[in-house]
């Protein structure tokens, strides 16, 4: 065993990459849930985004167009959920689960002819001078653009939720949709937009997997990342920066356990493989237990069906 061969700098750099897909999906779901909608279809939207982005990037040769297509694909799929739950008043839990199953099937159908193909490469940003700074350079300034995009999105979501009128309306709709409705806010429109935002973010997260992290397309490649994103939103107590922490924690342990294995640590592989899930859950449970009331931070109307007649 040679633990000194694990470089903390590279470890942090790669945990940021490993966490990005989950972070994107989780921050999208956070907005959805803040608007009072529980969409359990994150996994389905992620994998649909993964194949939409992959297919379009391969056909056009441009990863950027691929990412846009992934966001569009995810948003489009989430719109099905939106119409079903907001206009037809179907049960959100059941519809969300169905969306996941539908997304998994749809993506493998769409992906039939894309297995084993190499996507166009997304270059790292490689900012000159800055990326050459020892330690900080590789951690902060040597990633692909989506890593920064995800971080910027967290800040924007926080600002949007807490510092803008639109964010206030969104939270009002999520806390008490009847009151928001009485005040004249369009509850259903706000929720539909939030659902589509969540879908687009999940789609981007999926495309990050298929275009940058792996990069390849295979059926079921998200392998549960969507569920992790959902869990992180809850454990992160619906707060953007805590969601960021949860995603990095999960990404970090995922990367660390592989490094420990490669370094030959004498812990059975099975324990290492389950460690990211255990540690993420444990840490976030402890955190939300301590603060008492933050554990009750769920939006009050979460998962409740709204109809203007009530």
């Amino acid at each position: 065993m040679d633990l000194s061969s694990i470089s903390p700098t590279l470890l942090i750099a790669s945990l940021m990459v490993a966490a990005t897909p989950i972070l994107l999906a989780a921050i999208g779901e956070l907005i959805v849930e803040k608007a009072g909608v529980l969409n359990l279809g994150v996994e389905g939207m992620m994998i649909t985004g993964a194949i939409c982005g992959f297919a379009i990037a391969v056909e056009t040769g441009s990863p950027v167009i691929g990412f846009i297509a992934a966001a569009a694909g995810g948003a489009l799929l989430s719109l099905i959920f939106g119409v079903l739950t907001q206009y037809l008043l179907s049960n959100q839990v059941a519809t969300g689960l169905a969306l996941t199953l539908f997304g998994l099937g749809l993506s493998s159908l769409m992906g039939q002819s894309y297995v084993g193909i190499k996507p166009p490469q997304t270059n790292k940003l490689d900012i000159p001078v800055l990326s050459d700074i020892p330690v900080l350079g590789p951690i902060l300034f040597n990633h692909d653009i989506m890593v920064y995009f995800a971080l910027a999105l967290v800040v924007l979501v926080w600002l949007g939720l807490n510092r803008t009128r639109a964010g206030l309306v969104l939270r009002a709709v999520g806390e008490n949709h009847d009151a928001a409705h009485a005040l004249g806010y369009k509850v259903i429109r706000v929720r539909l937009l939030a659902i589509m935002f969540g879908g687009a973010c999940a789609g981007l997260g999926g495309a990050y997997l298929s275009l940058i992290r792996v990069p390849q397309w295979t059926e079921g490649m998200t392998a549960g990342a969507g569920w992790i994103a959902l869990a992180i939103v809850v454990f992160g107590a619906w707060r953007p920066f805590r969601v960021l922490l949860g995603a990095y924690l999960f990404g970090g342990v995922t990367v660390l356990q592989l490094n420990l294995q490669a370094a030959g640590l004498a812990i059975p592989v099975e324990y290492l493989s389950m460690s990211p899930y255990l540690i993420t859950i444990a840490v976030l449970v402890v955190m939300s237990a301590k603060r008492g009331r933050t554990s009750l931070a769920a939006p009050a109307s979460l998962g409740r069906i709204f109809h203007a007649s009530q």
């Binding site: 790669s14 990367v255 490094n259």
Partner: peptide, 11 residues
């Protein structure tokens, strides 16, 4: 891909 990346990072 993750496994390969971890191995490469270890030199």
């Amino acid at each position: 891909a993750d496994a390969a990346t971890a191995l490469i990072e270890q030199g």
